[in-house]
């Protein structure tokens, strides 16, 4: 049973279908062990944006207030998606990197463990 309704074959409308975002799509990002940002962020992105540009122009303004951001060695950063490791290509677009509408990704920065090394 997919819904308990008064009449048979009740169908809901997908409120957040990609077509409702005027050409953009949603992408969620969380920085592991940096709970100064208390939750993952939701971004509205253009699918043809390069992943590297996404990091520099979209993620940076969110995360750069953290003192660890400037110290990140991007060659050591690891990314995860759906609990599995994910290797984005910075020169390719978000779409080419397989980031469909409402994809959620997490990144870890080895050696950088937040304020006081406490995961903050």
């Amino acid at each position: 049973m997919t819904v308990n309704a008064l009449y048979p074959d009740y169908q809901g409308k997908v409120r957040d279908a990609e077509s409702n975002f005027h050409g953009g799509r949603l992408l969620y990002v969380a920085w592991n062990r940096h709970l100064m940002f208390t939750n993952p962020f939701a971004y509205l992105v253009q699918p043809d944006m390069k992943f590297g540009d996404f990091v520099k122009t979209v993620m940076a303004p969110s995360f750069e207030t953290h003192p660890d951001w400037a110290k990140i060695d991007w060659t050591k950063v690891t990314w995860h998606r759906k609990g599995e490791s994910f290797a984005p290509d910075c020169s390719k677009t978000l779409k080419e990197n397989g980031l469909a509408h409402k994809a959620a990704i997490q990144f870890s920065t080895p050696g950088l463990d937040g304020i006081g090394g406490l995961g903050i």
């Binding site: 997919t2 409308k13 409702n20 005027h22 939701a42």
Partner: peptide, 19 residues
């Protein structure tokens, strides 16, 4: 348990992005 209901949820973040 009831996906057909919750796919309709009006999530403020998404509504802002939908304009």
């Amino acid at each position: 348990g009831e996906p057909e209901k919750y796919i309709q949820a009006r999530l403020p973040t998404h509504q802002i992005y939908q304009g």
